[in-house]
Amino acid sequence: MVIIENLTKRYGSLKAVDNLSFTAKPGTVTGFLGPNGAGKTTTLRMSTHLIRPDAGRATFDGTPYDKLVHPARHVGVALEPVVFHPGRTAINHLMAIAPYAGVGVERCHEVLGLVGLDDAAKKRVGKFSLGMRGRLNLAAAMLGDPQTLILDEPVNGLDPEGIRWIREFLRDLASQGRTILISSHLLSEVQQTVDDVVIIAHGRLVYQGSLGDLESSANSSIRVETPDPQALAALAVRQSWTVSEVTQVSVVIEGPQASDVGAAAFAAGIPLAGLTAQSTDLESIFLSLTEGQGGMR
């Protein structure tokens, strides 16, 4: 369980993170979303004690990060940008963290296997591709077999195959009861991975809840094809539905269910040629949530 409480960070007059609170629950993958510059990285860095917050705190199963004894055994963290000493081999990079995680060389090879880097153990990290670096970063976070994982933009730089791989990997970890918090600036990138979403814009929380609730919170609209659009539009107004579009052959109505529109048209004797429910896609919801916050700073 990750609990963020009233985290605040000011840079001069700019509030990078503004009284932000949210929770990531065990057994779920929580997507921490917002456009670039929304304050995601600052929040993650404050949570892990890299940046000192002006106010508020973050706890991991009740303990602040800097009070965890051997944090690597409780919280696995992989932040962006991915950083390694280019001259060090993959296995030596893990071996440098291993003492903190309380593990030996066998576990280092084990996590390399877990992320599919067994063959690259003795390769210098400077020769790694972006995708391989991402995997190594994840392997490092997994070293101490932590109950909580915090991954900053884990999908960045991965090819489609890699994205599918990490999706299954994270789903599997969550099903073991772990708490997974992943950040992304694109909802579509993580939409098939996350259960819950936390959306921030300009350092403030704009949405927290399940992905399903976010989808159903969207206004759905119905495109009705009819030979008599004028009559149908008039009917919609009488029913106090919103008409957003009228063409020669169709009307777009917002508010009612498709079945209500069909029944009303039947009662009014208006012939219909087609009825299509159009749900707003998640990315548009995401954009409207994050852009409706005062635009560019």
Binding site: H49, Y65, A72, I97, Y100
Partner: peptide, 10 residues
Amino acid sequence: TIVPTFLAEP
């Protein structure tokens, strides 16, 4: 690499 270092030992 100071980031992973301080993450491992805050």
